[in-house]
Design a protein around this nucleic acid. Structure first.
Lengths: 216, 216
DNA sequence: CGCAGAATCAGGGGCGTCCCCGATAGGCAG
DNA sequence: CTGCCTATCGGGGACGCCCCTGATTCTGCG
């Protein structure tokens, strides 16, 4: 697991203690060019240092992490942004990615995982915490990276999607049957197809799956 | 600003990077006996080390910071708890104080301020971030909503609360049984009591109930 | 000591969930 | 016409969830 190059990074977070923690966890695996506590400092540090990767807090005084990306656009060639946030809310994730971040990980990440994420972002990969991948894939349905999961959804027939929506809302099989004027057995058949096609194993997982994609 | 004694502390937070940051910011102003990433580790560390002050994250896997205070009650004489959280929500603040914390500061605090807060809590003072003081005063002036939730919760026994938390997170009865080293039948008994006492009728309603009250 | 509460467990039953094995009927492309 | 997909059903089974009636042990309290 040798790391051939030490990437240059700028750490942006309004909590000094968290910046210190990131710095300590990264150790000498990367070169920390600068730290910044707000948008103005961050913009200045990124333009001045032209780092390979910027570790960017989403909730930041002065306009948020997205503002940093906007104001440094074109002024720091090659710099990539990796969002690092406590928030796993869909708005935050999608908003940050739309602004141009190449990855989004939560602060529950370990130091080793963060180093790996930095390496991958620097190499051009998109990096996301597993739980957040759904948000991004849904928001960018139609782009190349999301083709795999989007195909999962497309494989559902119209009827299967109807059943799926009701089940995800908490309806029992019997209630779905009454709602769609079909028998319970037909509902079971459709649900079996839904779970198989989406690679899920229970209605509970389906509820989470649908919630993550804002399908309700 | 001379600090005559180095207080002993235990740092409890589920983010390793934040723990590292706190440790770095505190420097040698205090003696860090141990770190803990969840409720079980925290309880063990507090009882084993009997620290003067516990820096306690509010949102913690395994029941939250309040659970740590409850489970160490009477087992760590002289130990005081200082909540250290990103959240400034009234429920979090009040709930933590009700559980027995002697102070509550947000993570935007500086290292020097945190050292000062630790000193004051160790000396017996109550320490609050200025914006949070209002919440605490309001709570002791008599708020109804928080009390209502507490009454419902208080009717549950300790074991019932453990079962409830796991079920609300999506564990099956069998998984809960394995987690708590008891039989499925016992889990069913506890769940029956939980649903009856909370006037709910299914595990799905329990999930919503818990989510609405931020008990996860 | 007797009583109450808490925690542990068993058996059995009704119903929901998920799966397997089928079947029939209609639409549509090769 | 002949598959192929889709939608619609059925039987039956395994297992999970929820409720019921029991039971034992331990602890604390008057």
């Amino acid at each position: 697991m040798a790391v051939p190059v030490k990437h240059s990074v700028v750490i942006v977070d309004d909590h000094a203690m968290f910046r210190a923690g990131v710095r300590a966890e990264l150790g000498d695996a990367v070169t920390v060019l600068a730290e910044a506590a707000d948008v103005d400092q961050a913009v200045a540090a990124v333009i001045a240092g032209n780092p390979e990767v910027v570790l960017l807090d989403v909730h930041l005084p002065g306009g948020g992490g997205a503002e940093v990306i906007r104001r440094t656009a074109g002024k720091a060639p090659g710099t990539k942004f990796l969002a690092l946030s406590v928030s796993d809310a869909a708005e935050d994730v999608i908003g940050t990615i739309r602004s141009g971040a190449r990855g989004y990980v939560t602060k529950s990440i370990t130091g080793a995982e963060l180093v790996d994420a930095i390496d991958r972002v620097a190499a051009g990969d998109a990096v996301f915490s597993p739980r957040l991948a759904g948000f991004v894939l849904d928001a960018f349905a139609g782009t190349v990276e999301v083709a795999a999961v989007d195909e999962d959804l497309d494989r559902l027939t119209e009827r299967e999607r109807e059943v799926m929506r009701l089940i995800a809302r908490g309806y029992s099989y019997k209630e779905v049957a009454g709602e769609l004027f079909i028998s319970i057995k037909t509902v079971e058949t459709h649900m079996g197809a839904v779970l198989r096609k989406l690679q899920l194993s229970s209605r509970h997982e389906l509820t989470r799956w649908a919630n993550e994609r804002r399908l309700l």
